[in-house]
Every structure is written in C-alpha cells, then in structure tokens.
Design a binder for these strands. Sequence first.
DNA 1: CTGAAAGCGCTTACAG
DNA 2: CTGAAAGCGCTTACAG
Lengths: 332, 332
Amino acid sequence: MRNGDTDIIERATIQTVADRAGVSVGTVSRVINRRPGVKATTRERVLQTMEALGYRPDQAARELSFARNRTIGLHVAYGLRRLQPFFALFLSHLASHLRESGLRFEELGTRSDGMPAWLPDGLVLFGAHDDDRRIPYLRENGVPFVLLGHREDAASVAADDRDGGRQAADHLLRLGHGRIAHISGGLHTQAAYDRYLGFTTRLEEAGIAFADEGYLLEGGFTDLDSYRVFRKALESGMDVTSVFAGSDEMAMGALAAAEDCGLRVPFDLSVVGFDDIPEIAGERLTTVRQDIAELAATAVTLLQKLLKGEAAQSLLLPVHLIPRLTTGRASR
Amino acid sequence: MRNGDTDIIERATIQTVADRAGVSVGTVSRVINRRPGVKATTRERVLQTMEALGYRPDQAARELSFARNRTIGLHVAYGLRRLQPFFALFLSHLASHLRESGLRFEELGTRSDGMPAWLPDGLVLFGAHDDDRRIPYLRENGVPFVLLGHREDAASVAADDRDGGRQAADHLLRLGHGRIAHISGGLHTQAAYDRYLGFTTRLEEAGIAFADEGYLLEGGFTDLDSYRVFRKALESGMDVTSVFAGSDEMAMGALAAAEDCGLRVPFDLSVVGFDDIPEIAGERLTTVRQDIAELAATAVTLLQKLLKGEAAQSLLLPVHLIPRLTTGRASR
DNA sequence: CTGAAAGCGCTTACAG
DNA sequence: CTGAAAGCGCTTACAG
C-alpha cells in the first residue's frame, strides 16, 4: 500500500518526468494534454513514467501558461438556495471540469444590486429567471455567459426536463397507474414547470385529465416541504397509486410521508423522482436521471465557443428514467 | 454603474499597476500581501491605483510563485453526507481562505480502501471518527493533517460544542423552562455528543434529571428526520415547553412539527438550534453560533504550523448563543 | 523603503 | 515527431 519508493519530499515536476523518460518537457506536455503529434511508443513511455512517479501536473502552472488570463465565473441568482444538493454537485463538477481545461475558475459574489461582484472573461449563470436583470447587464458589458437552464434567447444548457416529465408519466402509465399525483416545488421555475408540463401532457394523451383532479401538490423544494404537503394530502383522503416528485429530495419526502401513513412502497404507492443524485436516490429510488457532470462540461464548451466568437447555442441534454425499487404495478 | 472607462479587453496585471503607480512590481506585491516595509504614502498610492484599475491579482500566478509546490487537500470520510449545509459552507470558506493565503487547494477523492486518492503536502480531514484509519495511514506516510472536530491526540480544531450545549440549556433555564427536549442526529459523532453532554450537564446542575425523562430524541441529522421524530413525540404526548436541536436544520424540522401540531412558537414552545447558518436560521431562529469561516481559517493556520515543523495543537473555538424569535419565557 | 532579477511549473509557437 | 526557448503573472531574496 506504500507509495513506491520515490522521494516523498520532492514532488515530481514535468521536468522530472521529462528527464526520466528521456524526452523534453514539451513532449511531456503534449502527452498530458493529449495533443496529437507524439509517436505512440514515446507517448507510452511518458505515460508510464508519469504513473511511476505519481506525477500530477501543477494546476496553477497550467492555468498560468495555458489559459491566457481567462477566468470563468459562476454566479448564482441572489437569494437562491445554494445549499441544495443539485447546486453543490454542479459546482464541484464545474470546478473540476474547468480545472482540467486549464481555465481559471471563481465563484462570484453579488453586489448589493444583485449583479456579479466583478466581471470575469466568461460567466455561468445559475438560477436565472425570465427577466433576469443580469442578462441585459452582461450584454451591455460585453461579457459572454451561459445560462444553466432552458432558454432560447441566450446560450444555455439544461436537461430535457419536459421529456423527463414525459418519461416519468410514461413509466407510471405502463405500470397501469391511473391516479397519479405530482409534487412540485413551485411552477414558477423553468425546470419545475417543464417537468410538470411534460408529465401532464403525457397523461392527457392517455386520457387522464390531470389538471382537473387536484392531483397537483405544490410546496417548497425540500424533502420536508414535500413530506408535509404529501402527508397532508394523504390524510385528507387523496387517493392515488403513484406520485411523481419534481426532485429526488422531494421524492424522499414523499416516501417518508407514505411510510408514516402506512403505505407500502411500491405495493400501495409508486414514487418517481428526478435528478438521480446518488447520495439521495441511492439504489432504491426510481428516478429520472440527468447528467450533472455533462451539464457542467457542456456549459464550459458553450462558453469556450462564445469566447472564440462563435454564435450562442441552446442545448438540451437527454434524460433517462432509471427504474428501481420504488415503482411497481398499480395494485388497485 | 459602469466599470469606469478602463480597457475591458486587457486585464490589469501587477505590471500595469506598477507602471501606473510609478513603482516596481515588487512594491505592488508587498502591498498586495500586506508586507511591512512600504512607506505609507506609497502604499496608499498603490492601493488607489489597484482600485482604479479594478486590479485582481492572478491567483494562479500567486500560487505558482508563492506556495512552493504546497498543496493542501480536503478529504471527507467515506460515506459522509457531503450534501449537508455545514460541509458546503466549510468547503467554500476553506477554499477561499487557502486561496487568499496563496496555497493550492484540492478536494481529494477516496480510494477503494477509504484512504485519500493521493497525498498532498497537508490535509484537512472532515468527518473523522474515533478510530479513523486515515490517521495512522497519514502518520505512517508522514503527511501532516488537521482534523475538523475536537480531538486531543492530533492537530484539530472544532467549535466548543460542549459549551454551546451548555449555553443553550442556560438560555432556556433563564427563560424558566423546566421540561426541555433535545433532538440529536445521533450521539455517536463527537459534535453531537458534546452538544448533548454540555446541555444535559447544565440541566443537571439545575436539578433537572434530563436523562431519566425520555426527553432525548434521536433521529438522523436532517430537518425531515427531526420533524418526524419530534412530531411523533408530540403526538405521543411528550409534554415539553422547549427543545434544543443539534443543528439549525433539525431545529427547522422541529419548528415545522410544532406548527403542524398546533403549537405556537415561542408561546407554547421555544426552539434553539445550533450552527447559525444564515440560509437556514435566518432572522428567526434562536441558535448557537459557530464561526465556520473561523474554523476554516484556523485549520489552515494549524496546518501551516505543522508544515513548518511546529507541534500539533487542539483548538476549541468559542460559540455564542444568539437569541432571536423562537425562544421566549416558559408559559407553563 | 524600493528596485532588478531569478524562478515557480507549465504551454506554445517556432525550428528542425 | 521532437526539442529549445520564451512567456504567463506573480513572490522573494538580494542589493542598494
């Protein structure tokens, strides 16, 4: 389990690797960055040397030389719950992706007027809403930005929330469910609304007039909010065989409420979530998976295009329902 | 609101500042790093130039030259809920503090055997437990580390959880409360246990035999867990006028449960939390404040001492109860 | 109190 | 396909 017998004192640099592999640092650099134009055998030798030395390129040096003064900022809409799991995961993926691309990254503070505290070379905007004042502000200042969320009039990337809602509905319909509730954190956000829309549209295609049935439950975005609203509904006699929650957290709340109301999942009740956050969904929750790492990577790619002067794009990333243990055939 | 009329195209460097201020880059550097030995008027002039230029030192360059190859890693015990608010805040404070100190920072992955994926020059350990295998491992490999949490046999820093528990008890006693519950996420963690201990010790000093009363409620660490265990207790007839929760999240759960059980806070029930996380406690929750930024800063300071070869220290940071709107005089 | 210069560990044209 | 050299933006002895 020891680290080999390399000096622990002196960390290997690109020079160490170059010397040991009998090449120049330029060549090592090309290997590190997967650049073309290195003979296969050379590449292999360098790779092995790096491995043997436990070499890790110095990120600061990469940033300094690679990304000529380019720093990307992440700015979160004022007042947004930065503590939500989705944000934490997105942040960490964004940071590590940027790091790999050799770009500088900084999370931006907020001025008293809600604008980013300062302007980096490019921005990722988290939690943008319809008439977000940051958008005209950034345009005015000529700073390229990418929105996280679906939006046609700006560079943006989002999961295909609408299709995700549709898949959730489809899954439950196939299992024979007819009385289906939906728990949403609030339909005023684009993601929540699109999930709702895709979901109800699919139900209506199947002849289920969801909207009329009072099966829509709105609360906050947390598991506790979801628990309370769902438990209250169940206690008031809402009769459903399944529920689609707008996030994994909310699904966990619904699961807890079901348990406390004596419902057995999936026998008496099926539950579907959204996101597939491993720490939450685990191996149990049937949920619609969105790839957060991919969202972060795509945001970076879009931003890089913008920085090169290319046109803005709006991308929608596919999502997939992952059937697990909280959904089953409707028993009633 | 515009950014002044400086070129937005070319970002100012230390050289730009030096030229404009009519000094050398060395002098600017001294000002940036608050080093002594700069004439006050020179310092002032440089500061103003930096301000006027909107100059921000390049972090990558600082790391590269300042922190000779020193990188600090954060490693989280396997299986720990990284999604908890406390962790998110600690992480962000640690990262920004390290950044200001010009040190490299990286969050470390975990090998299949639970050890950090690789060994940086120094480590902060999050979520260490009593017989944490990372500790002998790091000692064996000669890597200095600081634990977040109270522990005598290693460099560590923690909030004074025990005193915090005592303060919570004291506050409630002064308000005339005699029947007081405690909600804990689980007494097996040091922080939770110390809070519990300080709390009950103070109660016992006041002649309240807490332990015998069944006023200890254990659940998970989340607001939902807390809600469920507290609501269940209330519905089972637990008769208390106040409750001390082991975290702000748990306190919010207790608040929600009280509301759903028809109790008015603080008239029928007083609630005290722990942490004082602004996004959670807001302006409403009476809670015991621990300074997370200070915890992060202290961890870094300790680590730097270790790196210089100084002896390990165990530090306890003071906490303070902040009375707000969820506590009041006992009415019964 | 201040400046000139070396050096941190990389990447990237430019030659060959 | 590969190497030598310049340069990224800082900090830090070393002189003065």
